[in-house]
Every structure is written in structure tokens, then in C-alpha cells.
Simulated scan of single mutants.
Amino acid sequence: MSAPSPRSRVRRLHEKAAYDRAVIDAILDACPVAHVGHVVDGFPVVIPTLQWREGDRIYWHGSSASRMQKNAAAAQVCVTVTLTDGMVLARSGLEHSVNYRSVMVFGQAEVVDGVAAKTAHLRAMMEQMFPGRWDQLRPMTAQELKATRILSLPLTEASAKISAGPPQDPPEDRSHPIWAGVLPIRLTVGKPEPAPDLAPGIAVPPHASRFRIG
């Protein structure tokens, strides 16, 4: 288990913390959606984006013209990934909670430079989510790559926090006559919907029909 940094150490409900890289990696790999928090012009801003992990780093991308993307490369950021697993209904309002798995990564984002490097990381993102799709795509143009900025963070300052299980009512509340328990939440992927202009005869590929989150 890695020793947490002052920033990544979980201080509230520290018994729910996990610093083991296998736990952190599993959560990052299970959810492609992340929120990146940073300060822009003196104000806090949090933006949603897609993230992917390659070894000891996470990556995300956006428009090269985005002021948030430009700012993230020059200041400290926090990237958060969260999976919601259930709503916990207890016998008192105070004890209601949520079952979840989350990861926070801290540091100064680094920009990926160069056409070859950008292409390699975008391919890695696509192949992780939709194996086999990259080679079927129309190749990216030089202008598309120029318009895309890729940022990354090392996983040297990261921590996970996990909440699971039934409500933790105190003994004196357990006889109160109200239902208590967990409402499980699962992200499900529906049936693929073809583009309205899709040419006839093109079947749904396995990487689309088998896609799952969580």
C-alpha cells in the first residue's frame, strides 16, 4: 500500500480510504467519466471529461482552444472519478448515505506534445473502450490532432474512498418501524441505436454491443 501525500490523505471517514494502486486502478478503469477541478481567473471550475489510464498515468483530452485546457497545463488540478453503487436508506435522516467508489488524483497536468504521441494516446483511449475500433476508423487529420490537447497526471498523488454495505443505524433506532436498506444502482448500456444515415448492411460490432461501465 502506498503512503498518501498530505493532499491525498483522506481525513474524514478515513476508514473508507484506500491507497493501494490495484484498488485505485480498478476504479479508474471502471468509469471513463471524470471531473477535472482547477482555478480559472480566480474562480473554481469543474468540467466533465473522458479519462483513461495507461500504466502509472491518467489522460484526458479536449479542445486546444479551451481556456480550461490551457489553464490546466499551468496550475495544480484535481481529477475525480466516482461510481455510485447505491442509495442507503436508514431509520434517521442523519444516517442516510450513498454507497460509492471514488478516486481523486492531484498534481500539475502535463501536456502531451507531438503528432505521434497524441495519436498513440488517442488510440489507447479508443482501444480501451472499444477494442478493435481504431483501425476501422477514418484516420485523424493533421488539423484534428492540432485542435486536440491531451493532458496527463501521474498517479503518485491519488487516493480512493469506498463506501459499501447496509445502513449503520445505532442500536436504539433499529426497532423504529420504517423500511431500511439499500437501493442498488447500476449503470446499464442500452441496445445500440444506429445512426439515421448508416449504410445498409453494416452490423453492430462486438465492441459496441458488449460495452459496459462499472
Rank of each mutant, 00 (worst) to 15 (best):
L94F: 15
R57S: 05
I178M: 06
R149E: 08
R138M: 04
T148M: 06
I27N: 03
S163C: 09
V39W: 11
F106R: 00
A3P: 11
F130M: 15
L198D: 02
R149S: 14
R57H: 10
Q136A: 10
G165F: 04
F211T: 10
S66Q: 09
M68T: 06
T82Q: 07
E127V: 09
V103F: 04
P200G: 07
V103S: 03
I162E: 14
L198K: 03
R21D: 10
Q108R: 14
R53T: 01
T148W: 11
F43N: 06
D20M: 05
A26R: 04
I185V: 15
V98Q: 02
G42Y: 06
D169V: 07
D135M: 05
Q143F: 02
L122A: 09
L153T: 04
H35T: 01
D135P: 01
Q69K: 00
A116W: 10
A164V: 01
Q168C: 09
A90H: 13
P206R: 13
H38W: 07
H176S: 00
Q143V: 06
P184L: 05
C31W: 04
W179V: 00
P205D: 10
M125T: 09
E157V: 01
R21V: 02
V36T: 07
M68N: 14
M125R: 11
T80M: 07
K118M: 09
G201T: 13
P192H: 02
G55C: 10
P192V: 11
S64D: 15
V79K: 01
P196Y: 10
K16A: 11
G107W: 11
R210S: 14
A208T: 08
A30V: 03
R53V: 00
A203C: 13
G165I: 05
A22C: 03
S102F: 06
P44Y: 08
R67T: 10
A164P: 02
P4W: 00
V115M: 12
A117D: 14
R57Q: 08
W60K: 01
S2G: 01
P200S: 10
P196H: 07
I185P: 14
